[in-house]
Design a protein around this nucleic acid. Structure first.
Lengths: 247, 247
DNA sequence: CTAAACTATGTACAGCGTACAAGGTAACGC
DNA sequence: GCGTTACCTTGTACGCTGTACATAGTTTAG
């Protein structure tokens, strides 16, 4: 193995190049390797996915991993494509695009909460994977019947996914920093000394939003607010956009 | 030096702990080090900001850098805080919140285009820096007179900044991948073979949006679309939200 | 039965962040 | 003036990373 990334991504497709017949069969499949990498990333974060530790957890030598993937970067693309492939089907937009958009955002948030490391993979080559393309296709259908042309349909999807991704990043980060609550309290004390009564608005609002203090801060509130804005913003385009020129 | 990150961030504040008087003065100031790190990141990306190369470009030894910052992670926080401190003042919202929100988004986009590496720094500790706090305060004022309570004001700002950040990431990535146009063409050929006529919607829309092919794809269109949705979504909250319960 | 194609393995290298120890230098308390 | 103290500077070294490369072993094609 160790084929081109494109062929590797489509390795389960009948059109993929036949795997060589000579020589010993691999003791592990490429799928197993990617699967284990995902398990590792889920448990201990993307930084824990080193070629060495991955090999160890599979009971193979370090360099054997390179029989299956050409590089760590390629591996990350394979990982993302696999979790994308496994996303559940979006709800049918027949009963209104609003519910479908909410479901779209929530299912993506759920994916990113289950696999936070996906946020750390920033490789445009994921776009050529079968899982990612299938996801793109399914999600485009969320806007069926909304009367959007091709470019606007793509922009609308990107808009929703971007919101979900960005909000997920905030939620995940918030959970992480909550683990260091003790140190945070001490820093907040020092910070108060520097701030004094400067930036009163920032202090009031920040306290209300609970970012500076270790207060409970309902992070879900920001999600709800944002999601409602996303839906309202799209409604303006979908329901009023036809009549007058919006741009 | 090599003080706590908090004191380092606020090093120009009169309340910051006095720098020690004994021993030789530093040959470079901490500000110079951070400045040079920013220049390096602007030119060659965040990955090029290694302690060794930073030291080289400053004419000092590797370990001398640690006289100024405790760790590379701390350095990144200092870098982000400095570029945040230098952001221009947002426009006055007195002439309507819409123009102010558009300016808010555009100025943040501009910042992220000038310093794309800011997108790669994902450290919550930036929030305790004077530059970042000042930016937060200025930007909260964009919603003066919009009738939002503290929590909603914060959520609205987060919403706009999140959009800008996410859209900037897409624009920057698009520019990067445009550099590898030749390889991309070849991959697109192979991909077409795998795709066949599956996912027709994705293929049509994708082609229209120009992601799969190397076509010009007006990335600004997605920005314009998204920004208009952001404004419309906020309008729903600000102009209609008062009368009926929105949540 | 030979040759080709394949996997598996160990060694090695360059690069990273940074701990640690030693040495040089300027200001303080006397 | 003189230690003493505090600070900056420097070199060496460690553990970690991704991965190039050479070698050896194994299976199948011809």
């Amino acid at each position: 193995m160790a084929r081109d990334l494109l062929d590797l991504l489509w390795r389960d497709d009948p059109r993929a190049p036949a795997v060589g017949r000579r020589g010993p069969r691999s003791r592990h499949s490429t799928g197993e390797v990617v699967e284990q990498a995902i398990a590792l990333a889920d448990e201990r974060g993307l930084a824990a996915v080193t070629i060495r530790s991955l090999a160890d957890s599979l009971g193979m030598t370090t360099m054997s991993v390179y029989t299956h993937v050409n590089s760590r970067d390629d591996l990350l693309v394979l990982m993302v494509d696999l979790v994308n492939a496994r996303m559940p089907e979006p709800v049918d937009p027949a009963h209104g695009w609003r519910a479908a958009v909410v479901d779209l955002a929530e299912s993506n948030l759920s994916l990113l909460r289950t696999h936070p490391w996906v946020l750390d993979v920033d490789d445009p080559r994921t776009a050529i994977g079968p899982g990612t393309i299938a996801k793109y296709d399914r999600e485009l259908h969320v806007f069926d019947g909304a009367g959007l042309d091709d470019v606007r349909r793509d922009a609308a999807l990107t808009f929703v996914l971007g919101f979900a991704r960005q909000a997920a990043a905030r939620l995940v980060e918030h959970r992480r920093s909550a683990e260091f609550g003790a140190d945070w309290q001490q820093v907040a004390g020092g910070l108060a000394g520097y701030l004094g009564d400067a930036h009163p608005l920032a202090q009031t609002v920040g306290r209300a939003a609970g970012e500076a203090s270790g207060s409970p801060y309902d992070a879900d509130a920001a999600w709800e607010f944002g999601l409602a804005r996303v839906v309202a913003g799209l409604a303006d385009e979908i329901e009023n956009g036809q009549e007058g020129p919006a741009g």
